[in-house]
Amino acid sequence: MTKKRLTTSAMIASFAEEGQRTTAAPFGHALSGLAAQRDEIVGLTADLGKYTDMHIFAESFPARYYQMGMAEQLLFGAAAGMAEVGLVPFASTYSVFATRRAYDSLCLDIAEPGLNVNIVGGLPGLTTGYGPSHQATEDLAILRGVPGLTIVDPCDSVDIEQAVPALADSAGPTYLRLLRGKVPTVLDEYDYRFELGKAAELRSGGDVVLVSSGLMTMRALDAAQKLAEHRVDTAVVHCPTIKPLDTETILRVADSGRMLATLENHSVVGGLAESVASTLVTNNATRGVVPIGLPDEFLAAGALPTLHDRYGLSTDRIVKRVLEELG
């Protein structure tokens, strides 16, 4: 049997499975919908309107759209100034540029004065095959230490559509890990509603609990179905807000004899896994956590399906890892 060759465009690659339901540009449409209701909403980008779905907003509200060019520090400085005078800016760029290149501006211009600036980071984690220059595999580790910064890692189009107005209503700075283009639509099947700072148990199970964020929640749900074929009863808890983490829910689901694993589209260093482990230790609920995420290394370039399988983010690799841990 000839194995199907896995290929995707490296820059605008989609992690959606073949035949999966998707929604086009949910962030751009959600922001435009919000702006139609609130005159203070403005959009900015650093030469990446098309690649962060900000072009949808630009077409609807050209007078409230600002193209700052390839100058991420300027992007954040301008957004801070707008917030100072009562506007509510959404500033989009790639996550690698928001974190590595413009960290000082984000920290001192936006976070230190506690301004309502909403940073939208494209290509988070392993969502492009362009290699380390564009793969933001450590953005959560960099930003979790910024005081007062809210961090959201949405699973799908439903999460994004509901998160945008919630972030605008949040008083301080926020960082949204953007899923762009044709984004899978999954959570509408689970009676789910996004609530800032809250996790949601999407599926119950008595043997294993998978605590996940971002696109890994849809992989966790798929893995749970496949694990059922091995008679493994698996719960899935989605954590769309990385900071502040829903400590109450984490402690509740950890208070059992079930195997506990975290799933994240991020390095196993400094992201969801370490946040969950820290929560357990600081609340005297010490127990083991199996971290499923990207390795602590710079990743290769290539087709997304191939890379996800290579680095352990594919559904089959998740199932294999859980079965190995169960022994």
Rank of each mutant, 00 (worst) to 15 (best):
Ala35Gln: 06
Arg101Gly: 07
Ala46Tyr: 05
Phe61Ile: 04
Ser95Leu: 08
Arg21Leu: 11
His29Gln: 07
Val96His: 00
Thr99Leu: 14
Ala83Lys: 09
Leu31Ile: 11
Arg38Asn: 14
Ala36Arg: 11
Leu34His: 04
Met68Ile: 13
Leu87Met: 15
Phe57Tyr: 12
Ala83Pro: 11
Ala36Tyr: 03
Ala30Lys: 03
Ala80Met: 08
Pro89Ala: 13
Leu31Lys: 03
Glu18His: 09
Ala80Tyr: 05
Gly33Leu: 07
Ala79Thr: 02
Gly19Ile: 01
Arg101Gln: 10
Glu72Phe: 10
Ala35Val: 06
Gln73Trp: 00
Phe76Thr: 03
Thr23Gln: 06
Glu59Gln: 15
Met54Arg: 07
Thr52Ile: 10
Val96Gly: 01
Tyr65Arg: 02
Leu31Trp: 01
Phe61Cys: 00
Arg100Trp: 08
Gln67Gly: 10
Ile41Ser: 04
Arg101Leu: 07
Pro26Thr: 01
Gly77Glu: 09
Glu72Asn: 15
Gly77Met: 12
Asp53Trp: 04
Ser14Tyr: 00
Phe61Met: 03
Phe57Ile: 05
Ala36Ile: 04
Glu17Cys: 00
Gln73Gly: 09
Arg21Met: 09
Glu40Tyr: 00
Phe61Lys: 07
Ala71Met: 01
Ala24Asp: 11
Ala83Thr: 06
Gln37Val: 12
Val42Arg: 03
Leu34Gly: 07
Leu48Ala: 06
Ile56Lys: 00
Glu59Leu: 04
Leu31Tyr: 00
Ala46Met: 05
Tyr65Phe: 15
Glu17Leu: 10
Val96Cys: 02
Pro26Lys: 05
Ser14Thr: 10
Gly28Pro: 13
Met70Glu: 11
Ser92Trp: 13
Glu84Leu: 13
Ala30Phe: 08
Asp39Pro: 07
Tyr51Gly: 07
Leu48Gln: 05
Val85Gly: 02
Met70Asp: 11
Ala83Val: 11
Val85Asn: 06
Ala58Glu: 15
His55Phe: 13
Leu75Ala: 09
Ser60Glu: 15
Ala63Phe: 06
Gly19Phe: 02
Arg21Pro: 14
Asp47Tyr: 08
Ala79Asn: 09
Thr52Leu: 15
Ala63Ile: 08
Ala30Asn: 09
Glu17Arg: 06
Glu18Ile: 13
Gln67Val: 01
Gly49Arg: 08
Met70Val: 14
Ala46Gly: 12
Val88Ile: 15
Gly43Phe: 02
Ser95His: 06
Ile56Glu: 05
Phe27Asn: 02
Ser92Ile: 03
Ala58Gln: 13
Ser32Glu: 13
Thr45Ala: 12
Leu74Gln: 12
Leu75Arg: 01
Arg101Phe: 13
Ala102Cys: 12
Thr45Gly: 02
Gln20Leu: 03
Ala24Thr: 12
Phe15Leu: 13
Ala24Gln: 15
Gly43Arg: 00
Gly86Thr: 01
Leu34Ala: 14
Ala58Tyr: 11
Asp53Val: 11
Ser32Lys: 09
Ala25Gly: 07
Gln73Ala: 11
Ala83Phe: 10
Val85Glu: 08
Ala35Ile: 02
